[in-house]
Amino acid sequence: MTEIFTISLIWSTIRLSTPLILAALGGMFSERSGVINIALEGMMLAGAFTAAAVTYAVGSPFVGLVAGMGAGIVIAAIHAIACIRYRADQVVTGTAINILMIGVPGFLSGAFFLSSGSTPQIPKEHLIPWTPIWIAVLLVPLSWYVLYKTPFGLRLRSVGENPEAADAAGVPVARMRYAGVLLSGLLAGIGGAYLSIGQSSLFTRNMTSGRGFIALAALIFGKWRPVQTMLACLLFGLTEAVTIQMQGVVKLPSGEDIPVQFIHMVPYVLTIIVLAGFIGSSRPPKALGIPYQKER
């Protein structure tokens, strides 16, 4: 058993947690402002594809990273406009964006790269394996500070808890919610970019493979708070790292592989348990999911 718990496990936990931390903290800004964000998956895909395509075309991963953030913001803007301005159902809109973003990267790569859903290989010197990790590391204290110690954070939380009172106090509810959702797009975009130009060297079809939803689970498991959310991401990253390291190494006494499927379930089962209130209670922002209409 000891051979799994090595330096390489820690390193692989950090690498696997990074996109989760970025997306989950993004989701936190959106949900604390009162807008449900199950579109993290789609926003990550947008960031991953755009970052890889632009890096390949321009040859600069930093331009690619910025483009990935931009793509995340564009997708977030669609979510924000539909949910805030047109008061669409936030879960349905999020689902629509996820379906849309399964298609769009494939559609564009078919046109630009004549491939069936992936970008060409990016040369090794054009990858940024470290930058997104540092961004994620710095982001945790930063988002804690922004959320709890700045007027912006206070306003953001107030429109998520009680938009009527916030409005009465002069806080621009819609503008704060736009800010929250767009921030989630920006951060999920970085998370996606890390997958394509940090961890690997190209975009492949559906390369997020559910990480947006694990990030959402971590956000709930972390009770919509930055530090707890990071810890949840590290835990979920660790479970994934363990499954990768265990494969073919650790056997059951009967000589068979340990089924990885059960370890894959851990984040999801934990989230259901914590949401039901068995381990402490995880309470969402009060106005989460409710469109706000100003009294006329």
Binding site: A96, I97, N98, I99, L100, M101, I102, G103, V104, P105, G106, F107, G110, S116, G117
Partner: peptide
């Protein structure tokens, strides 16, 4: 590509 289907659906 057939991805147009998801684009239209979304």
């Amino acid at each position: 590509t057939k991805d147009i289907v998801q684009v239209l659906q979304g």
